[in-house]
Amino acid sequence: MSSSDAPADDTSGVDTTTETDGETDSGAGTPADPLLAVEGVHSYYGESHILEGVSLDVNEGEVVALIGRNGVGKTTTLRSILQLTPPREGHVHYRGEDLVGLGTNEVAQRGVGWIPEDRRVFSALTVEENVRISVPKGGDVDAAVARVYETFPALEERRNAEAGALSGGQQQMLAIARGLVGENDLLLIDEPSEGLAPQIVADVADAIADASREATVLLVEQNLPLALDLADRFYVLDNGQVVATGDTDDVSADDDDLRGYLTA
């Protein structure tokens, strides 16, 4: 895998980049108006500078993976899109509208859903209550609940159980179900395979693949084979910057250069 000083004739399928504010190289096949355009975002936790000019595009209908080792700013990127960690510089355009300055609830109301890293199901609420609360105001709650149970039969069996009593895999299913009933056009999915057994990861992958038929997905994932299997394109994040991007068809999970970005 190439780094920023990679030779010009590198044929690994990975475009290396040190994107700076507002400059985006989103790889092959990018239409003129992406669904989501993150442009030169700088975000901080207190005085810690976490994102240093991150730019990326996600086109409608795509699954785009954001990969990188722990602590490089992947989750912060999602939080910055959602305005949970509002950027101090840069823009986040969604359907052409700048989300910076909006409240998180307003971002969500525009159709941006979040399936967070540690599931964050409401543990004291029942499974069904978790689904019901995720249906937008005015939505058909009963139809949404029925659809979730059709997609995830295991959840129907535990419909009256507190979500905190579910297994990790079931909680992940519930988190995905919550994102689906939110009638979202863009799903931000953060580390869905983290801490799950391999068989459960396969189920989660199927669920994400199903979800991607209904919504565009920006997927943060450290499980490289899973990320490449699910995604159309990828971005590699390192030290708060996008350092590489490409088409997943052009790389493999055992690409040494790509793997190099995921190991400390």
């Binding site: 959602l82 409240g103 004291a124 609360i133 919550r178």
Partner: peptide, 13 residues
């Protein structure tokens, strides 16, 4: 339980 997650569901907490 989780005001941030509730906000991310589109609810004005």
């Amino acid at each position: 339980e989780d005001a941030e997650m509730t906000e991310a569901l589109g609810i004005d907490v």
